[in-house]
Simulated scan of single mutants.
Amino acid sequence: MGKVKVMSYTISLDGFGAGSEQSLEKPMGLGAENLHDWLRQTKRFAQMIGQEGGSTGVDHDFAEKGFENLGAWIMGRNMFGPIRGDWPDGDWKGWWGPNPPYHVPVFVLTHHEREPLVMEGGTTFYFVTEGIESALTQAKEVANGKDIRIGGGAETIRQFLQGGHIDELHLAVSPLFLGSGEHLFAGIDLPALGYRQVQRVEGEHATHILITKG
């Protein structure tokens, strides 16, 4: 049986997963341009965007693990794009170009209906308006026993934590402060939810925290 995981989710030293005022020009929000520097320098990231090079090491290894044994993704609408409200048209197809790095079905949480979006490389975006339980049920149906990865934003992860659905969390802590934005653990009591086992691994450009129930 596959697990439901948060992998390679980056937060600042003060716990924010994105800055305030996210937009097309500043997708990570104000002051968060360097939040994912640890990932951008890895060989795994270079491969994701079709380039050569990139570093190997601890950061790369964690980024690589985030794509192992995956059968489906679930993400919030903010991670899919900057558009809010009704979909004005079908022009926006995500941040990643015609061949997104997922290569499995991706379920996007939204309040506004949209037809499935078939992309190159095996990625199809399905837009789920019935909430996290419906998205998780659909993801399990297509994952065929493999893991399901929960992507951002922070509110999406909080919902799955509060629902008791997440088996493992891997957080990459970047050495910067944001001061405001989307705080990952706002309103979350991890011990009350059963999360007690913590492992810390130092990477080249981030500290990796592994959290599981126990």
Rank of each mutant, 00 (worst) to 15 (best):
T56S: 13
A72K: 11
K65F: 01
Y126L: 01
W38R: 07
F177S: 01
R196F: 05
I83D: 07
A172N: 08
A206H: 05
L24P: 00
E52F: 03
E141R: 14
A206D: 05
E115N: 13
T129W: 07
R40L: 12
K3V: 01
R84V: 13
A172T: 04
A32W: 08
W96A: 12
F107W: 09
E202P: 00
Y9I: 04
S8D: 14
W38G: 02
M48P: 00
R114F: 04
R158L: 09
M75Q: 11
I148W: 09
G163E: 12
G94M: 10
T156Q: 04
A72S: 14
V173W: 02
W87Q: 06
G179V: 06
G76R: 06
N69C: 04
W95R: 13
I209Y: 11
P105W: 07
N99C: 12
G29V: 10
E68R: 14
G2N: 08
V6M: 10
I74T: 08
E168W: 10
G2H: 09
R149C: 14
M119S: 06
Q51P: 00
I188Y: 03
Y195W: 05
L35C: 09
K146S: 13
F125K: 03
L24S: 09
V58W: 04
V6F: 09
L13Q: 12
I11E: 04
K43S: 14
P105M: 07
W38P: 03
G181T: 07
G94W: 09
L178V: 05
L161K: 06
D59C: 07
D89V: 05
L210E: 08
E25Y: 07
